[in-house]
Design a protein around this nucleic acid. Structure first.
Length: 478
RNA sequence: CGGGGUAUGGCGCAGUUGGUAGCGCGCUGUGUUUGGGACGCAGAGGCCCUCAGUUCGAGUCUGAGUACCCCGACCA
């Protein structure tokens, strides 16, 4: 943590990020390398994400279930690509109950294998399909390099796992869940995302196709914020997930999986944060409105508090998340404190306001110019509108930022200079896997995705000069 | 696993040629304050990462170890 104010525009964005994460009271340092201690305020943000997703999962017919933390090592090995992809980052339990285990247990890095095993027993008939399951869980991936929320050794997430009778159905499910993530990101987290497909070398270990939502962070890097995989029949074959069709023929299922993690908390910080700290999107903010009573003495105190309590009761009555900050601190301190924690709206009430039936609303997404004196009458409607306006504005700001830093490029020279200064490159792409690796080596930029929304026609690949029929986004990423 | 750092109160740091352990923030008590990060007074709080050495004497010098951080590679 630095003493000087570090801004998102600073040279060291990571430093700013860490600063915000700690100062906004989201996490606490962990004694275990790369693991997170998430404090209540940070966890409430995650709970908001969870609620927003769960609502959408239920609406699309999914049910929650839970599977074991430990996975027999042999399970991982049943799907060749899968084990190859995850082996380097596994944490393995070899001793339990004081005895060396006959078979080591892997702490799940993801649950395709053990859920696949369960699915093989749950599914007998085409009548059992589709099977639509979601699990809220923690997983462990022992990464070399960790950052709070963005990449931690242990993280919280949801992983959806579904089984279908046909390839088309599985593909539809995969894309549907990508849409669910997009809807959530845009309409709750105020983060504009690009839906796209991952390249061969970036896709999930064991998947047929991987789809992603990519967001641009404040330092112009990309962050994969959610993924959805069409697993084809790879796991169905490895775990014998079979059903008897209407025609009485034994068939393999087509499965999918999709996940979104606590990384989303990091995405919110890195997308919206500013010099003053965190800015939380109103629909996810644990505290949407903080009410700060202002008074000089006991005589002023009572009427001010009465007014605050009355206004807050009206807001809470409509389900708004409101906190009254009655700490014995100076108002200035409290203003800054809540700004750092990203509370979208501040409601100030002082003695003058009590007299005039007024109050002050200050919005976190704007500076002093966003401060307005309002009438106490109809406060609920005014705050409701304001929260929506803040959401819209934050989304618009992030969208404008992304647009300003996304460039259609045609030459490798332009590409290299963009990689240097940061931003997304939208380019025609017809390169090989090796070309992709070479670009990463030379510029640090990776192929983030092939956007699902493609331009008409074709163009010249900026790297190979060949005719290309699809556009890719390249960028440095987290 | 490469390259570079750091290790001293809860946090951030200083500590000169080796000689009684310091500062800021925070914390406790108290009083004055309060419309944009207030201030006074009085307090509490340390196995200076570990082990071994040099020395009358080590936070400081030497050696070994450990942990953590940053930049890469690996990845949600």
């Amino acid at each position: 943590m630095s003493q000087q104010a570090v801004t998102p525009q600073s040279e060291n964005f990571s430093e700013w990020y860490n600063d915000v994460v700690y100062k906004a009271d989201l996490v606490s340092p962990s004694p275990v390398r790369g693991c997170l201690i998430i404090k209540p305020y940070g966890y409430e943000i995650w709970e908001g994400i969870r609620a927003g997703l769960d609502k959408r999962f239920k609406a699309t017919g999914h049910q929650n279930a839970y599977f074991p933390l430990f996975i027999p090592e042999s399970y991982l090995k049943r799907e060749a690509e899968h084990v190859e992809g995850f082996s380097p980052e596994l944490a393995v339990v070899t001793i339990a109950g004081g005895e060396v285990l006959q078979e080591p247990l892997v702490v799940r890095p993801t649950s395709e294998t053990i859920i696949g095993e369960a699915f093989s027993q749950w599914i007998q008939s085409y009548r059992d399909l589709p099977l639509l399951i979601n699990q809220w869980a923690n997983v462990v991936r022992w990464e070399k390099r960790t950052r709070p929320f963005l990449r931690t050794s242990e993280f919280l997430w949801q992983e959806g796992h579904t089984a279908h009778a046909t390839e088309a159905e599985a593909e539809a499910e995969t894309l549907q869940m990508l849409d669910v993530y997009t809807d959530f990101a845009v309409n709750e987290a105020a983060i504009p995302v690009v839906k796209g497909q991952k390249s061969e070398i970036e896709k999930f270990a064991g998947a047929l196709r991987t789809y992603t939502i990519e967001a641009m962070m404040g330092d112009k890097k990309a962050l994969q914020s959610g993924t959805s995989h069409n697993l084809g029949q790879n796991f169905a074959k490895a775990f014998a997930i079979k059903y008897l069709s209407r025609e009485n023929v034994e068939e393999f299922c087509w499965t999918t999986s999709w996940g979104l993690s606590t990384r989303m908390v990091g995405a919110i910080i890195m997308t919206h944060g500013d010099d003053k700290g965190l800015r939380l999107p109103p629909r996810l903010a644990p505290i949407q409105v903080v009410a700060i009573p202002i008074y000089k003495n006991d005589a002023e105190r009572t009427p001010v508090l009465e007014t605050v309590n009355r206004l807050v009761a009206e807001l809470r009555g409509a389900g708004m998340r409101v906190h009254i900050d009655d700490r014995e601190e100076t108002p200035g301190f409290k203003f800054n404190d809540w700004e750092m924690r990203g509370v979208p709206v501040r409601l100030e009430v002082g003695p003058k306001d009590v007299q005039n039936n007024k109050a002050v609303l200050a919005r976190r997404d704007m500076g002093k110019e966003g401060k307005q004196f309002i009438s106490q009458d109809g406060i609920l409607a005014q705050v409701t509108d304001l929260l929506n306006a803040i959401h819209d504005n934050m989304l618009a700001q992030a969208t404008a930022f992304r647009k300003a830093n996304t460039h259609d490029l045609t030459t490798y020279d332009d590409f290299k200079s963009l990689a240097e200064k940061g931003g997304w490159a939208r380019v025609w792409w017809a390169g090989s896997n090796d070309d992709e690796r070479k670009i990463k080596e030379e510029t640090g930029a990776t192929l983030r995705c092939f956007p699902l929304e493609q331009p008409e026609g074709s163009g010249t690949c900026f790297y190979t000069g060949q005719l290309a029929n699809r556009v890719a986004i390249f960028s440095k990423a987290y």
